[in-house]
Simulated assay, not measured.
Amino acid sequence: MKKLYSLTLLLAFALISNAQTVITQWNFDNVDPAASMLPTTGSGVFTKIGGVEDNLTSGLMPAGNPSTGKAYSVKTFPAAGSLNGTAGYQFTLSTVGFNDQINVTFDPRGSNTSSKWQGYEYTTDGTTWVAAGNNAGALTNSFTASPMVTLTLPAVCSNKANFAFRIVAIYDATSADYAPVGATSTYGPSGAWRIDNVTFSSGALSVNQNAIAGLKVYPNPVSNGKLFIETSANAEKTVIIYDLLGKKVLNTITANSEINVASLNSGIYIVKITEEGNTTSRKLVIR
């Protein structure tokens, strides 16, 4: 039954969003930092690595992307010139059953004194880590579009029970030390990173997939009949919701963020959002 259920879900995504299936997603919007570490879609484990600590203000995480939500922020990175590539974020999840390409998208941000160089690594056995590139020192002290980073991982990452991915602070490529985000700043361990909207998916990314800037779909799962869809533009949106058989169960055009989904039965759906010519599809859980 579980295999048939997964196959139906995969088919629905293929029909609606060009065969891209969300495996696991973190939106970090729970005000409780511990609760925000739990995935909002799918299964997986998010951990802090290399001694970094939560960066809280009055017990809360800072604003995310968009600013109406939260991002997960950490500080206490290694001292200058030490422990290159050890500190940051790690995401562990199973990709078993997903034989197509594995993608990861996320929105990063750094304070002016944090490392602007981020390294990307993956493991397929939970032990041996392989470099998957870096951001070429492109981290900035602001969120822009979403997703800000889109990576397609090597084929070896597909169908692995012990897959994990991590984002770590690395030295500037031209020196043996960390370089700060701020052009006139000095790197310091107290510099903070934020991350938001981390999504692991399987399948080819379509041209318009995730093209809506600042898109937030929450809460997910929905338990009170109200779904909120926010974007950077906050323009008029066409929202279509499909069930797992591809049947259209809701179709509305709205300029508001709140969508009434009280008429939908408990289960898994696909929500397709179109704004200003861009379209994004997301998995939606109704409880």
Rank of each mutant, 00 (worst) to 15 (best):
I212W: 06
K237H: 10
G203W: 08
D196L: 12
G182I: 13
V217M: 12
D172N: 13
G188P: 08
V207I: 08
N210T: 02
Y218K: 05
V222I: 12
N210P: 02
Y242K: 05
Y218T: 05
I229P: 05
G214E: 08
Y178I: 12
G182A: 14
T186G: 05
L215G: 01
S206K: 02
A173Y: 04
Y242F: 12
N220C: 01
S202V: 11
V239K: 08
V207D: 08
T174R: 08
N208E: 14
E236H: 08
T186M: 06
A204M: 03
L244F: 00
R194V: 03
K247W: 04
V181M: 08
G214L: 09
A211N: 09
L244K: 12
T186D: 12
I212N: 11
I195P: 14
V207R: 10
K226M: 01
P221K: 02
A173N: 08
E230Q: 15
T184Q: 15
G246I: 14
A183Y: 14
G246Y: 13
S206D: 11
A204I: 11
Y218P: 00
Q209W: 00
K247V: 11
D196E: 13
A192N: 08
N220P: 01
A173P: 00
E230A: 12
E230N: 09
I240H: 03
T174P: 00
P189V: 06
A235R: 10
D177E: 15
W193E: 04
V222T: 02
L227S: 01
A183C: 09
Q209D: 10
S223M: 10
Y218D: 02
Y178V: 13
Y242Q: 04
L227F: 01
V168R: 13
S175R: 09
P180M: 07
K216G: 03
K226D: 00
N197I: 01
S223N: 15
G203Y: 09
V239F: 05
P180Q: 09
K248G: 00
G225D: 03
S190Y: 05
N220I: 01
F200M: 08
W193K: 09
V239Q: 04
N208F: 09
K247R: 13
T186V: 14
P221D: 01
I241V: 13
Y187M: 08
S175E: 04
A235K: 13
K237E: 05
I170H: 06
T174H: 03
N220A: 01
G214T: 10
L245H: 15
S185G: 05
S223L: 08
K216Q: 14
